[in-house]
Design a protein around this nucleic acid. Sequence first.
DNA 1: CGAACATATGAACATATGTTCATATGTTTG
DNA 2: CAAACATATGAACATATGTTCATATGTTCG
Lengths: 121, 121
Amino acid sequence: MGKDRDIIEHCSSTVVHEDIVEQVRKKMPEDECLFDLAELFKVFGDTTRVKILFALFTAEMCVCDLTALLGLTQSAVSHQLRVLKQARLVKYRKEGKMVYYSLDDDHVKQIFDQGLAHISH
Amino acid sequence: MGKDRDIIEHCSSTVVHEDIVEQVRKKMPEDECLFDLAELFKVFGDTTRVKILFALFTAEMCVCDLTALLGLTQSAVSHQLRVLKQARLVKYRKEGKMVYYSLDDDHVKQIFDQGLAHISH
DNA sequence: CGAACATATGAACATATGTTCATATGTTTG
DNA sequence: CAAACATATGAACATATGTTCATATGTTCG
């Protein structure tokens, strides 16, 4: 244990402002919370999924129409809808062979608006 | 051209609700805008970057302290700070050999709050 | 029931991403 | 100037991600 002291401590191990680091650490949310937040934004971090969500802002849509709208494979659309569903961002309704997807969240719109606000400087 | 009509059109090429697709298409933002939005959220879609931003909510910090806080390599932290800088989310201030980073955006906090609101059901 | 169709899912593949290691840059101080 | 140090950057690597192809599932209708 004592031997460790002999090691010259560089930036990677030295805290320059211990007080600030402590203060910051206390205010940090739980690791799990931060992880979940990053996971949520990861879902928003893909053009296809963003397009799907924007589309659903306007209207409920079936997979078929989304496929036509996006110009992708039906498979790709289904895969992405699954991701959105797992994130509890969209819900679906079956009507015969068709499946209609719609928004299942109140926050997305506001999050997107804030994001757009950032983009436009 | 006439020959195309003979092709049996499956879901991938048929629009079931032409009117809705048209209506949705009209309301969709420019592709570039959607791309930029996804790019922004991609930046939020990583735990390390989320942690950095949360840290900077509390206080301006130097790379050294961030490195200690995050338990990562100094290199990793610098790389991620560069990403945040490129997205105009953080700004920096040099003081001797130290570089202090701080938030450079008003929207992040609100975006994160909305995100957290979604997570907690 | 069997054909047609809308959707879902698994495997495969190419690309993107985050981390570390090694090293460069730039500043301070003896 | 040289050593010490804080930060930045490039290369390399392992892993994650999004798409397509092939196929499965489930529904409608003759």
